[in-house]
């Protein structure tokens, strides 16, 4: 891996909509992006993620402060040069046009073609590369409107790749995808970032993916500003819990999940096979039964019989599904 090099830096940046005469949403932001890194931007809805991104991409002017690409501040005022540095993938995929996948991806070459819009041999090669980078080879002659949302999303990403910019911003690229496609896409993106050494800034609501795939995490919150760091660091120091948690939602730092706070009325002690214990705990919490740290009654023992077969025992009663265990425990607590 080549040494990370800082390519975008903001100094004392204030963002917001100057036109409407409002106060800045955020002030004195000092942010930076390194080449060959994947950064995720997270924050609850309405915290100003888009405003930050639009400012960083030069689509709306900054209220005060500096944004510099490789130390050059003037770039953001020149649309033609900016288009060779920053490309975007937006959430809105309702493209107007009867376009083939190839044609849409090729539109990404816009900053490089002459006024006629004719594609050179190099343009053709870049388009083909972008299409294969997101594995769209088999779809390249298809009409855009015949594709699924996930496929359209990948076409959009290919278009941004074809624009051949050192910085790419993606607004919730995984929003419309099912779980497997989310993971597949993030995997491809991370691989591309590392192989091609570009810089990717992704805004997302998916904490799991952010934890799993980002090099850096930016957490946005109107109260505490923008916090940045290694995602795992932000998890351990409680920043993630602070930004997203509330009275209803608690953050479980062990699993990296948010969950609704449920009142645990009863306690059991639990031991046995580690996988079995994890999922037993998971199931019991849903019916309001917590697992005690110390030895209490009743006590549940999980044992693994063989692959895919578990057995639970409470005293002399045994069962082979969690559903049965739930029934037994409910019965026991109701008697009390």
């Amino acid at each position: 891996m080549s040494a990370a090099k800082e390519i975008l830096r903001t100094e004392d940046l204030s963002i917001g909509y100057a036109k409407t005469g409002g106060a800045p949403l955020y002030e004195s932001l000092d942010l930076s992006l390194d080449s060959g890194s994947l950064t995720c931007l997270m924050g609850t809805n309405g915290t100003g993620k888009s405003t930050l991104i639009k400012t960083l991409t030069g689509l709306i002017p900054e209220m005060s402060g500096k944004i510099a690409y490789n130390g050059d501040e003037s770039l953001f005022r020149n649309p033609a040069r900016r288009a060779k540095v920053f490309s975007v993938v937006l959430t809105n995929q309702s493209f107007s046009g009867l376009l083939r996948v190839w044609e849409l991806v090729a539109l990404g070459r816009h900053p490089y073609t002459k006024w006629t819009g004719r594609y050179s041999k190099e343009d053709h090669e870049k388009v083909e590369w972008a299409i294969s980078a997101v594995r769209l080879e088999l779809l390249k002659d298809r009409m855009i409107h015949t594709l699924s949302d996930g496929e359209k999303q990948r076409v959009s990403i290919a278009r941004a790749l074809a624009q051949e910019t050192p910085l790419i911003y993606m607004d919730e690229p995984t929003a419309f995808l099912d779980l497997m496609h989310k993971i597949e896409l993030m995997h491809i993106l991370r691989k591309l970032v590392k192989e091609c050494n570009f810089t990717l800034l992704i805004s997302t609501h998916d904490l799991q993916l952010a934890l799993q795939y980002s090099d850096e995490l930016w957490l946005m919150n109107r109260v505490s500003g923008v916090k940045k760091g290694l995602p795992e660091d932000l998890l351990l120091d409680g920043s993630i819990a602070e930004v997203f948690g509330n009275e209803e939602l608690g953050f479980d730092s062990e699993s990296g999940h948010f969950k609704g706070k449920t009142e645990l009325k009863h306690r059991v002690s639990l031991e046995g096979d580690s996988v079995g214990v994890k999922w037993t705990k998971h199931a019991l919490e849903k019916i309001g039964v917590g697992v005690a740290e110390s030895e209490v009654e009743p006590s549940v023992l999980v044992s693994k019989i063989d692959a895919g077969r578990f057995e639970w025992s409470i005293g002399d009663r045994k069962c082979d599904t969690l559903e049965a265990l739930n029934r037994i425990l409910s019965g026991m607590f109701d008697e009390k």
């Binding site: 689509l59 033609a80 975007v88 309702s94 046009g97 376009l99 539109l107 819009g117």
Partner: peptide, 19 residues
């Protein structure tokens, strides 16, 4: 013509491509 093709993706995309 070239700019009009970029407009097919919407103004935000067109602007991001330097139009």
């Amino acid at each position: 013509g070239k700019a009009m093709n970029a407009f097919l993706l919407g103004e935000a995309y067109a602007r991001s491509m330097g139009v």
